[in-house]
Design a protein around this nucleic acid. Sequence first.
DNA 1: CGTTAGCACTCTCGGTCGGAGAGTGCTAAG
DNA 2: CTTAGCACTCTCCGACCGAGAGTGCTAACG
Lengths: 377, 377
Amino acid sequence: MQPSGDLRTEHNSVRAMTSEQLSDRRAGILQLVIQDYIETATPVASRHVVEKYALPASPATIRHEMHALEQGGFLTHPHTSAGRVPSNRGYRHFVQSLMGHAELGLAEQASVRHQFFQAAPAVDEWVELAANVLARSLGLLVIVAPPHPERLRVRQLELISLNELLVLMIVVVQEARMIRQLMPLPQPIEVDELDDLATRLSWMLRGQSAPDVREAARQAIDAPDTHPVEHFVLDTLAQVLDRDAQRAGVPAIAGLGGMMAQPEFQQVPERSLELIELVDQHAAEDLIPSGVIEEVTIDGAMHVLIGDDHPTELLQDCSLVLAPYSSSTITPDSPEIPGYVGVIGPTRMNYPRNIAAARFYSQLLQEMIDAVYGVSR
Amino acid sequence: MQPSGDLRTEHNSVRAMTSEQLSDRRAGILQLVIQDYIETATPVASRHVVEKYALPASPATIRHEMHALEQGGFLTHPHTSAGRVPSNRGYRHFVQSLMGHAELGLAEQASVRHQFFQAAPAVDEWVELAANVLARSLGLLVIVAPPHPERLRVRQLELISLNELLVLMIVVVQEARMIRQLMPLPQPIEVDELDDLATRLSWMLRGQSAPDVREAARQAIDAPDTHPVEHFVLDTLAQVLDRDAQRAGVPAIAGLGGMMAQPEFQQVPERSLELIELVDQHAAEDLIPSGVIEEVTIDGAMHVLIGDDHPTELLQDCSLVLAPYSSSTITPDSPEIPGYVGVIGPTRMNYPRNIAAARFYSQLLQEMIDAVYGVSR
DNA sequence: CGTTAGCACTCTCGGTCGGAGAGTGCTAAG
DNA sequence: CTTAGCACTCTCCGACCGAGAGTGCTAACG
């Protein structure tokens, strides 16, 4: 799956706009208003926009247009005598039609790449790094998840005796992850015997996943001449494979600080508190609705959820930019749940920049993973 | 080092109190005021305390005593017509002399133990778990760090060929940690040769730490008949040992949500924001002053820092309970930096409970580590 | 001399009021 | 269609006020 330039927003099937196409000027004004509001976070007044952008029209005219835009549902104003604020619909139209396609600056791209090549070459590290760097650069909440296989398949098994009754099990799986597990034995075993067992199982299990291992464990129980520890090891291995398949996909979350510094969170303590609590508990599943993850798994396209698209009440006034990516190791017999780069911020977020950034980081992560894990022999 | 029941607070050498010993009644009132304030977070009035605790005296009398306590520096009041609030000195006296010795309830102890035995047996997991469970139970910020050796010593080395030019290096160190490192090779090497190299180096390096490995690398360069990859492997190994010694001690932080829910943070957005930012960046070193860590490394005793003991301005109105612990694997030739369980909350924290909890968790962690890693053969 | 009732005093808190400022919507003229 | 003018509305902010809460002081009492 190649991250496509294609952009999905919810509601995009609903072409409610056909009835009232926006004139060029009107669209231009909408764009200016949205850009200005994104920048200043204050309702934008007709007069302000005229002066700031040196429009060839009077405030009254602009007011007229703004009024029309409000009728169309693209703008609102918080009270009679305040400037205009984009509505969710306004943002949606902005993202779909008004805003151009942006890329991250080359200097920034280079600097980010540099940091990634400095880091230790492990997916977890990259994911963590991506979340931190991106969060810092955007000042928003960033959630980055690694792609992970649905099932892990054994590649190599090592058993290291720590003492008579304690063994360290190391499993290298096909997907180049590594799992370690301390294993207290039910009965002692000789070091030599343990080594033999490890090499034998390592051969036997190559390419197998949890269900296969379970099957092997069942057979080992029936076979008369096997060491009792063998069954125990197989059993533990199966458990560990399952457990780690779960754990492989845990996302990194960063940027709570920047997020809380956004003006929309300064005044609403109880909403802030909820959000802090979610992040504190690493509850990524509550921050990114599972429905979108499913869609993304199927179509692999970037998604932008704006405002009340969001099912969680907590994030009513927030938007989510989600850029999925997969490793190229994906094959029919080892299906994979894609990773993603998610940016969460107030609906008043810098969409062009955030979308470009999420796309760039997701592509970079994909590249990095492919470069290192892509070709296995 | 056994976590001792001994309790240190800063300033405890200063016996400024000798000049004015508190009468029994006065001390009792101080205790009531502090307990009440800890419970309610509102300034406590003379009348309130009389009614709530059915004191055999009138509000006026209590007022008199409170006045005296204020003269002595144990209480303050925020403004003329508010109840009394404990001062830092008041808290300090409370912790040192007034509050009794508390233990965690047996039911809670059992439940926590249970959770620990459920978890995967790895120090990192325990540390993470301890931070989460404790934070949730106290509703405060909790920082838990694992003890970690100053130097890592090699126990076993594995080299797993992923493809022609990419090798996964796995180092098991004496301290039962495991390090993995992906290593792009400067030139290809046969799989058999790689296996040989691994077993040979594994023997050769057993018990050695980074400086020794560096030395070995230097010798390998001079020796004429060694495969050029050998030097490269040794070099990487030395780097990795150093890097991981750093990384081994990273603390887990949890409980920001509960902390921000404390009334003292509801009204002060900019202070909250700073704190959120520190936690977001995992800046444990800014939350726990390094001076205390040093002291703790030397004397191994619990410490309680109250209010302006804290050098960081940010935590002026906070207290820190710090319970250090070490693994028993510590020997003269492998010095260890102790781990700790730290609880940070407003100075108005439940000291007896928090101290008991920190002590219990630190002892539990020590037990767990000793049970699994203590005896190595 | 310690204790207590009484009372004046002080300060916060919440609500109301009013003026300044900001923007809009409407209207009528260009 | 555009625009100047103007009335209207709503927020924001500071001032003000009264109620309530608690203290500190004083004087009387056992």
